[in-house]
């Protein structure tokens, strides 16, 4: 009696043989330090999240700065307009002083 494998084509034999070996092949395992690498990567991910919180603080600080600047600017403009008014009156006075040939 002929062996069963001789009834099959080369390809069939090869595949069944290979699948049989595949069944026996132990599962590959990751290296022991891989978990540590993953955790350190996640640590970096977390570290990237922290600046996002800082960004919010920076944005808040920037808003406060802008508000202070706006206040300072408006104060400055107010005082500048008041000064202009003072100059106007004082220049009037000066001009009146120069009317020598009346």
């Amino acid at each position: 009696m002929q062996p069963q494998n001789d009834m099959k084509t080369d390809g069939q034999f090869e595949l069944e043989d290979a699948l049989e070996q595949l069944k026996k092949l132990p599962r590959a395992t990751p290296p022991p330090d891989l978990l540590g690498r993953i955790e350190s990567r996640l640590g970096k991910v977390e570290a990237k999240v922290i600046p996002m919180k800082q960004w919010r603080m920076i944005a808040a600080a920037a808003c406060v700065l802008v508000a202070l600047n706006v206040t300072a600017l408006s104060n400055y403009l107010n005082s500048a307009s008041q000064q202009t008014a003072q100059y106007d009156t004082s220049s009037d006075a000066l001009i009146s002083d120069f009317q020598l040939y009346e």
């Binding site: 084509t9 080369d10 069939q12 034999f13 090869e14 595949l15």
Partner: peptide, 22 residues
């Protein structure tokens, strides 16, 4: 997939099946 693998294995190892079967 199995058909593709059969073809692939036969192309890579045309004589191996015969050699192992005998």
């Amino acid at each position: 997939a199995k058909k593709g693998l059969r073809n692939g294995l036969t192309t890579d190892y045309p004589n191996r099946g015969n050699a192992t079967a005998k």
